[in-house]
Simulated assay, not measured.
Amino acid sequence: MSTGHRKRATIRDVALAAGVSVSTASNALNGQGRTNSETRDRVKRIAEEIGFRPNALARGLLSRRSHSIGVITNDTYGRLTLPMTAGVSEALVDHGVSVFLCATNNDPRLAQLHLEALLDKQVDGIIFTATRLDHTPHVDLSSLPMPVVYAFAEGPANSVSFVPDDSQGARLAVEHLISLGYRRILHITGPEDFVAVRRRATAYRGCLDAMGEKSEVMFGAWGEEWGHEAVHRILSRPEPQPDAIFCGSDETARGVIDALRDHGLSVPSDIAVVGFDNWHVVAAQTRPALTTIDMGLKELGRKAGLAMLDLTQGKPVEFGIKAIGCSLVIRKSCGAV
């Protein structure tokens, strides 16, 4: 009597159908040995046709790899980490590598528990990401028995780190405003103790200095509330008001736009606004839609994943901090057509 369940195909079934030995079939599927390309392609095609899936545990024992990596992050809401993790997965999925995402909530005890769980799973490597470039991990990653890659975080000198090029992104924003004819450009941004904030502010000042224009940076807490407060301050002053505002985040930019509207000013007719992040749920829904800087988080994650893949395969990877270029996303808030 049939149970309706198809018998699981084995490596012996593949070898028999391909007319090769079991060892040849195994080498062809694992990319080992000296199997010629014609045989390798035939074995892989037949394995797919009969539905053969290699046993992950056995494959790991043979290769001494678990074909999995861990991502440790303090980004509770995933605004930065989720697009980066999507990029990591995109780089690794075709190589049969799985990704475990562990959020620490900035809790050292939880971070240690996640790390121990990943070590118990014998992951091949760990990618550490954070909500700010200069965030220090709550656990010691310096002496682990596997490679560690940093994404949106700056690791030690003997590691590989991928970060957005904040200076280049800020220059894109300011140079775009200058190209549209704006000259009195104000920069409203986040806390000065963030390294990314300082880099963007320095690049902003450099652009205006090169034009012989005055620069002014207003530092404050991240978020819409600070955008409202900053606008109230500048509109209370007697000196000429800015004709454009470059914001250090999309949330701050939305607060700025709402506050300008509350004061009877139109964006971009009276004052143009540019943000930083391209957080789509904010930027696309702001009225008018927000011109902003995209940090390329998915591409950053993809490069981190590729670096991890090379490290786990014993390939050479250059240590150091690698800055990934940002891009300008033009919407209506800057006044460009």
Rank of each mutant, 00 (worst) to 15 (best):
E90S: 12
L118M: 13
Q112Y: 10
G78I: 10
D294H: 08
G60I: 03
R42F: 10
E116S: 15
A117N: 15
V149A: 03
E216T: 11
V93F: 11
L82P: 08
E192R: 11
P288G: 01
H187F: 13
D250R: 01
R184A: 09
I50A: 11
L186G: 03
G248Y: 01
I185E: 00
P164L: 11
E318K: 12
V197Y: 06
A203M: 09
I234W: 00
V163F: 06
P288A: 01
T76G: 01
G190N: 07
G248H: 03
A58Q: 12
A58P: 14
R59S: 09
L260Y: 03
R331E: 06
L29H: 01
I178R: 13
F276L: 09
V160P: 02
S68R: 07
D262N: 14
A86I: 08
H138W: 10
K44M: 10
D294G: 08
D13K: 00
H114K: 00
P242I: 05
E213N: 12
L29I: 12
R45L: 13
A304Q: 10
V329W: 03
D166A: 04
G19Q: 01
W226V: 02
V195H: 12
V174D: 06
A153T: 06
L235Q: 04
F219T: 08
T131H: 06
S143Q: 15
P242D: 05
P164N: 09
V267D: 01
Q168A: 14
A56L: 13
R42S: 13
L177W: 05
V273E: 02
S269C: 04
G296C: 07
S2I: 07
L141A: 00
G255S: 07
D140W: 02
V195R: 15
I330M: 00
Q285E: 15
A253D: 08
Q32C: 08
A304T: 12
L265E: 08
H135Y: 14
C102S: 12
T85L: 05
L186Q: 03
R64P: 01
C207R: 09
T24W: 02
T286Y: 11
F194S: 05
A230P: 00
I234P: 13
A230F: 06
I188P: 10
S142N: 15
K121M: 12
H95Y: 14
R171Q: 14
A103W: 00
K322W: 04
V174C: 05
L101V: 11
V163A: 14
L62G: 14
L180Y: 09
D209V: 10
E216I: 06
L29A: 04
R79N: 13
I293T: 03
V274E: 01
T252L: 05
T291K: 08
D124P: 06
G78S: 02
A117R: 15
G264H: 01
